[in-house]
């Protein structure tokens, strides 16, 4: 399956090179095909995050590991204590129960130690909140609008404007190289390595703009603009899905983002203006 994808992508990559040579024929090939060389999607039996595609996701992954290791320690400690108690103090072995019901020292310890553990978590955690909130100085702003049941992307900053819709490819029209339930007809295309700001809203009900491999999620709320940002250093294709119940098509409005080199992105804008709108 994977090999099949890569070879199909190789061909597409070649086509892109030709696309460069003949800029005038922008309609001939999709200049975003460079992103097909690397696909960052979940795989079966996965037990951890999908490969981090953004610096934000790297930080989320790090904090998640920290918190989970601490909590695994707590769960393990409680588990060991319980097993010890079950063996040592079972009725067959300890016939006369003790009558101790207080021990001030130990009661203070089990208040203070958890508090200290929480303090260890809370400092990097608060730093992460402020890091995630810093959407200043983006290279590009994209307006994302949720609809029942598709996404609308608009690039207010590009010359001539660009506004198009992105629908899931129905199950019965999936082509080789596409992923069922994740691939879309018109992906969002962004320049790799640049800071992108998303301004997210909805035209009808609540949706959520959720990209697990980039560590991004915001509700799309009618009447409200929420922001989110990312940088995608690696040229490739990244996937997400709507994550707030929005009616009967809730599971049928995925998100596909292609990060491409800046030159390809600029070509793609012209291509999309000609073909997507």
């Amino acid at each position: 399956m994977k090999r099949c994808i890569t070879s199909a992508l190789g061909v597409a990559g070649l086509l892109v090179l030709f696309g460069h040579a003949a800029l005038a024929q922008a309609t001939a090939t999709d200049p975003s095909a460079a992103a097909n060389v690397y696909v960052d999607a979940p795989h079966n039996w996965q037990m951890w995050f999908t490969t981090a595609g953004s610096p934000m996701m790297v930080k989320i992954d790090w904090l998640m590991e920290l918190v989970l290791w601490i909590m695994a320690g707590v769960v393990g400690f409680v588990g060991v204590l319980m097993v010890y108690v079950f063996i040592r103090f079972r009725a067959g072995r300890n016939k006369v129960p003790s009558t101790v019901t207080h021990n001030t020292l130990i009661e203070v310890i089990w208040i203070v130690v958890p508090t200290l553990l929480l303090a260890v978590i809370v400092i990097p955690s608060i730093n992460l909140i402020y890091y995630e909130a810093d959407d200043s100085n983006p290279y590009l702003t994209i307006n994302v609008t949720g609809h029942q049941w598709y996404w609308e992307y608009s690039y207010p900053g590009v010359q001539g404007g660009l506004d198009y819709t992105s629908y899931m490819i129905p199950d019965n029209q999936i082509q080789p190289g596409e992923i069922r339930r994740l691939s879309v007809d018109h992906p969002m295309v962004v320049p790799a390595g640049e800071k992108i700001k998303f301004v997210i809203t909805s035209a009808d009900v609540l949706h959520a703009f959720y990209l697990p491999s980039l560590g991004m999620q915001r509700y799309a709320i009618p009447g409200t603009n929420l922001t989110q940002w990312t940088i995608i250093p690696k040229v490739g294709t990244y996937y997400g899905q709507c994550n707030q119940i929005c009616g009967v098509g809730h599971d049928a409005m995925p998100i596909e983002i292609k990060a491409v080199p800046l030159a390809d992105y600029l070509n793609w804008v012209k291509y999309a203006q000609a073909n997507y709108q």
Partner: peptide, 22 residues
């Protein structure tokens, strides 16, 4: 837990094949 780490959203009657195992 694993499905969540892999990014599977809730309230989906159908999902990407990558979530099939768990």
């Amino acid at each position: 837990h694993f499905l969540g780490l892999a990014g599977m959203p809730r309230r989906y009657p159908d999902y990407a094949d990558a979530f099939a195992g768990w």
